[in-house]
């Protein structure tokens, strides 16, 4: 059987006192669109930097198509396209010059490079801007240059760090569409990090990264399914902790305090609402019942909210 696109085993990273990755293990099958979901500071960027060979892990291994990134970085780099969060293009060079430069770094030249650049420009709608300096482009266009650049050597694996940060909703939608198309048409494996639920929801599989550990992994639908309950969100009118205690005493239910709200996971939650309101109506500003989302999966596993 072919090696997975990404195989991570007991990966740890420590920098001084801070342990940003605490024994990660997971794998990404070739051809998957995989999202690493987690809050900023959860270890995503550290993991991303290890994948892209910029830093070495303290212990553990990470393989890209069976190639260990620490032992054979040059070989691993060859099979990866990398899109960083901060732009890795030179603003003083034109779009065309940036693309050609990137091709040279990957050993492309002559007609092969010419065709590749032509194709990349066309595909990302950059042809009319080819001779513009990148520094004069808008944020969305610049991101397209990044993507065009990363895909120029036709890598079997594309890794992206927070690809839609700084993009407006339209540009974000276009980007996700492009990534899906890339997976479907070219069979490219895509690994992206994100702190946005909408972005993770389009992935084939999602890994939830929290405080340096993977707390859940699976298809978004399966992760949601696994909760097996509805989500009851209570907006307390008064003291949330006091209400939490009362609910515990009265119903024997553990409500978690998430931000200002109380959250209860319960099957057939709608049947519980009348009882709750009857008991503590005066202490509740509002109650809502919903099917769990990926956001709830995150809260379920971490006890905190992803978005603030």
């Amino acid at each position: 059987m072919a090696s997975p696109a990404l195989e991570v085993t007991d990966l740890r990273h420590r920098y001084g006192e801070r342990e940003s990755l605490r024994g990660l293990g997971f794998s990404v099958a070739a051809g998957d669109l995989f999202a690493l979901l987690g809050p900023n500071g959860g270890g995503k960027t550290t993991l991303f930097r290890i994948i892209s060979t910029l830093i070495a892990p303290t212990s553990g291994t990470l393989e890209v198509f069976g190639v260990d990134v620490v032992a054979h970085p040059a070989q691993a780099r060859r099979s990866m396209g990398v899109v960083f969060q901060s732009p890795a293009v030179d603003p003083w060079l034109t779009v065309l010059e940036n693309l050609r430069h990137h091709g040279y770094l990957y050993g492309l030249s002559g007609a092969t490079l010419g065709r590749g650049v032509e194709r990349a420009l066309e595909r990302f709608g950059l042809s009319p801007r080819a001779s513009d300096r990148v520094g004069t482009l808008s944020g969305g266009l610049r991101r397209r240059v990044e993507l065009a650049k990363a895909l120029l050597p036709e890598p079997p694996l594309l890794v992206l760090d927070e690809p839609s940060s700084g993009l407006d909703p339209t540009a974000r939608r276009e980007l996700l569409q492009e990534l899906r198309r890339l997976r479907d048409d070219e069979g490219t494996t895509i690994v992206l990090t994100t702190h946005m639920i909408e972005e993770a929801a389009v992935a084939d599989r999602v890994g939830i990264l929290h405080e340096g550990q993977l707390v859940a992994i699976g298809a978004p639908a399966d992760l949601v399914e696994a909760i097996g309950a509805d989500i009851l969100t209570i907006d307390p009118a008064g003291n949330a902790t006091a209400l939490q205690q009362k609910i515990k005493e009265r119903f024997g239910l553990d409500a978690t305090l998430v931000g200002p709200n109380l959250r209860i996971e319960r099957k057939r939650a709608h049947e519980f609402v009348p009882k709750l309101v009857e008991a503590f109506g005066s202490e509740i500003a509002s109650v809502s019942v919903g099917k769990p989302t990926l956001e709830d999966v995150f809260t379920h596993h971490t006890g905190t909210r992803l978005s603030s």
Binding site: S52, Q75, R78, S86, P87, A88, H102, Y106
Partner: peptide, 14 residues
């Protein structure tokens, strides 16, 4: 600081 260097370092260039 600007990020250009990481693109070079992540490439297979010797």
């Amino acid at each position: 600081q600007e990020g250009f260097l990481q693109g070079v370092l992540a490439s297979p260039a010797p």
